[in-house]
């Protein structure tokens, strides 16, 4: 299949399918993430990338035989390595003997959150999540460094505005529906953000949904209008502020005499401290994710339109 657009469509179907699969396997949080990231934002960003590069795949100029050999050797070694591991789902695997029972039995007393996934993500594995947030932030910086477009000249701006005006004057129904829907999407993103302690959800999903609402606005009303609504400098600052908030919580815990990201010392009561810490770092994650997604979309899309 050489039509990249069709490939993106099929990958969207794949995202939807795998999310239903996760739901059937009872992994609600994973399904939530797959829903918002895999099926939604990822295919949108891939579409913008496809519009930058052209629609059909180039014909191959070289035969990657050596690469295939290397891949086969590495894969064989990896499969050889898995032979020592315990069987899939076996009850006496180390993870089922030591880590999982602790999370399931003690996390409610230690963090006071009913959703075990959130307490593992934000509290027990706080370092990993910090790493993920930094990776997302780095992706945003990379896009800014590679694709940032300079200021356009005045006449170009007028032309682009009139093109957008013509294009978006036609979509009356779309505009009105979007206007009705966007407040609900933003509200739902906030619900996901702050309800993540109790049900499925959390900072990653909420950030992506928030960004999706802004991207929807930008697509229907045109990029210049969206840039007037969402200030670019503010978005850049926000993406850094999320990471700083996350790291700042860790520094405060160190100043209070605990380890890095040890939320017990944030408040007098360990459970209250855990709750406060998890809330704050989820907020940081949400800010960074939303801001970086908006940055990536604005830069890809702006480059395509030469704005």
């Amino acid at each position: 299949m050489r039509d990249l657009f069709a490939v993106v469509m099929l990958s969207g179907i794949f995202g939807l399918l795998s999310a239903s699969f996760f739901v059937a396997m009872d992994a609600v949080d994973v399904a939530f993430t797959e829903a918002s990231v895999g099926a939604g934002i990822a295919s949108l960003l891939m579409l913008t990338a496809v519009t930058l590069t052209g629609r059909s795949e180039d014909s191959e100029r070289h035969r990657p035989m050596w690469a295939l050999v290397v891949v086969f050797i590495t894969g064989g070694l990896l499969i050889y390595g898995t032979l020592d591991m315990p069987y899939f789902g076996s009850a006496d695997a180390p993870i089922h003997l030591h880590v999982a029972p602790r999370y399931i039995n003690d996390s409610m007393q230690e963090t006071g959150l009913p959703n075990i996934v959130t307490s593992v993500l934000a509290s027990y594995r706080g370092f990993d999540t910090f790493g993920e947030v930094v990776v997302i932030f780095t992706a945003g910086i990379g896009v800014l460094a590679l694709l940032r477009v300079g200021r356009r000249s005045g006449i170009h701006r007028v032309m682009a505005d009139s093109i957008f005006y013509l294009m978006h004057e036609q979509h009356l129904i779309l505009r009105i529906t979007t206007k009705i829907l966007i407040p609900f999407i933003l509200l739902f993103a906030l619900y996901v953000q702050f309800h993540g302690d109790f049900g499925p959800g959390g900072g990653f999903q909420a950030g992506v949904i928030f960004a999706a609402a802004i991207i929807l606005y930008a697509m229907v009303f045109g990029l210049p209008t969206a840039r007037r609504v969402v200030n670019r400098t503010f978005v850049r600052l926000l993406s850094a502020a999320g990471v700083l908030l996350y790291g700042g919580v860790g520094v405060v815990t160190m100043l209070n005499g605990g380890n890095f990201l040890d939320y017990n010392v944030l408040a007098g009561d360990p459970v209250a401290g855990q709750h406060l810490g998890i809330l704050l770092i989820e907020l940081g994650v949400g800010c960074t994710v939303a801001a970086v997604m908006v940055i990536i979309f604005f830069n890809f899309s702006g480059r395509r339109d030469n704005l």
Partner: peptide
Amino acid sequence: PDFLDIAIVYALINFISIIGVLHFSDSAVF
């Protein structure tokens, strides 16, 4: 019934991605 949250996300994301596809299929390259 927690799953309904995911269903809401899907309904919204579905709309956004369809609009995205149409927006980009209008562009000159396509």
